[in-house]
Computed example of a mutant assay.
Amino acid sequence: MKRLAKSYDSVLAGVCGGISDYINPGLDPLIVRLAWFIISLFNPLMVLIYFILALVMPSPEIAGTKQ
């Protein structure tokens, strides 16, 4: 069973990388980062959601995901 967790491929906190791994392991995290950035331009609440996810999402070691 897949679990949502931060990614080893991280720029800030690994949230977008973790989301891209959860959606599709072959999906490039850059696409999710760009989409998150564009949405954040129109909805500043997404920045707050990002920081909440950075605090709540487990690290890859705790979630048991592989590199």
Rank of each mutant, 00 (worst) to 15 (best):
Y50V: 02
S7A: 10
K66R: 15
S40H: 05
G26C: 11
I38C: 09
L55V: 11
A35C: 11
M1C: 06
N24Y: 02
A35N: 07
K66C: 12
E61H: 07
I38Q: 02
L30F: 10
L55I: 13
G14Q: 02
N24H: 09
I23C: 05
L12K: 13
L34P: 03
R3D: 08
S20W: 01
I19P: 00
L53F: 15
M57G: 01
L30I: 14
D21R: 14
C16D: 11
L48W: 07
L53W: 08
I52R: 11
G64Q: 14
S10W: 04
A5G: 04
P44Q: 05
P29L: 04
L34A: 10
S7E: 06
Q67D: 13
P58Y: 03
M1W: 00
E61G: 00
I39R: 10
F51P: 00
R33S: 10
G64T: 11
W36E: 12
I23A: 13
I23K: 10
I52N: 00
V56K: 14
V15W: 03
V15K: 02
Q67T: 07
M46A: 14
F37N: 12
G26E: 13
P58F: 00
K6Y: 00
P60I: 02
D28W: 03
I39D: 06
T65K: 15
P29W: 05
F37C: 13
L48M: 10
L48F: 14
L27S: 03
D21P: 05
S20I: 01
L30S: 13
I23S: 08
A54L: 01
K2Y: 07
S7G: 00
Q67W: 10
A63G: 07
S7T: 02
L53H: 06
S10Q: 12
L12W: 12
T65L: 09
G18F: 06
K6R: 11
S40C: 07
F51Q: 04
M46S: 13
L4E: 01
P44D: 06
F42T: 14
G64H: 14
F37M: 15
L45T: 13
F51M: 09
A63F: 08
V32I: 15
G14I: 02
